[in-house]
Design a binder for these strands. Structure first.
Length: 270
DNA sequence: TACTCTGTTGAATA
DNA sequence: TTATTCAACAGAGT
């Protein structure tokens, strides 16, 4: 499911475990979800560690524990976090379960496109420290976007919106929403954008991320009713602005929906 | 049966 | 050298 707001929502689900010690761990260490990490080390280090804090950055989550343990989770396409009673029996897709006194913190992922990362040390791991500026941060500037758009001039705009080193946390539906809010065709290349259009992408990206975090990110409630995302996957979905039938195509390898009327492929002439 | 899917990666290609 | 596309990953739902 998850893009940045959903990731934030799932992170908070584990909040009831803050300040509590992990007594026991159950994990499916042979699963692909542990690629690149050492399940035995995770088990050894997290056992007896106390969950201190958590944060998200784009689609990445970081859980900090005592004993200098850092647990990174990525939800991939189907990952979920939830809380179960302490005596819970892990199911087939519950690949990492942290048992605490009163409850169990569960990371489940059916398709296993997600990932578990782990670091044992005083300072933050490289995979966390080197993340790009968040879309909602002051470091996410129009100047930065301009520079990237000039460098990656042939990629369709949709592809750039999906690039996690440019728009961390933006996924398929958010990319379509941003393009619709900015009234830009997903197929145009970044090189075709003038300064004003670049600023529109910047503005729309920040707005969509901010509002999504305040709605979906808090309680899974819907974003404003006039957003494209509420129409997007409906059969015969229509543009919330002008009621025109949405167009669909695969762009940058992902299904894309847009309004052919208010996101025209040609440059505006006046 | 055959197609879809809110994601990322590494190999192939340009 | 650098950017981009594509298949692969794996399961559940339609």
């Amino acid at each position: 499911m998850p893009e940045l707001a959903e990731v934030e929502y799932f992170r908070k689900r584990w909040d009831s475990g803050l300040g509590q010690r992990v007594r026991e761990i159950a994990l499916h260490g042979e699963k692909r979800i542990f690629r690149g990490s050492d399940p035995a080390e995770i088990e050894r280090t997290l056992r007896g560690a106390t969950l201190r804090s958590s944060e998200t950055h784009g689609k990445q989550m970081l859980f900090r524990f005592s004993k200098n343990a850092w647990l990174g989770l990525h939800l991939g396409m189907t990952g979920k976090l939830r809380v179960e009673p302490a005596g819970f029996e892990p199911g087939r897709h519950d690949h990492l379960v942290l048992f605490q006194r009163k409850q169990a913190l569960v990371f489940a992922d059916a398709r296993m496109f997600g990932r578990v990362r782990f670091h044992h040390g005083k300072s933050a791991p490289a995979w966390w420290a080197k993340l790009p500026p968040a879309v909602t941060s002051p470091q996410f500037t129009t100047a930065r976007l301009r520079e990237i758009f000039l460098r990656r001039r042939t990629a369709p705009l949709k592809a750039l919106l999906l690039a996690q080193d440019v728009f961390p946390g933006v996924g398929n539906w958010m990319a379509d929403e941003i393009l619709w809010q900015a009234r830009l065709d997903p197929r145009i290349s970044a090189a075709q954008l003038d300064a004003k259009q670049t600023r529109e992408v910047w503005r729309a990206a920040r707005m969509v991320c901010r509002v999504a975090l305040k709605t979906i990110g808090v309680d899974w409630s819907d974003p404003p009713g006039d957003w494209l995302m509420l129409q997007r996957w409906k059969k015969g979905g229509r543009c919330p602005r002008d009621g025109k039938l949405l167009q669909r195509a695969t762009i940058a390898g992902r299904t894309t929906a847009w309004c052919p009327n208010c996101q025209p492929s040609h440059r505006k002439t006046g």
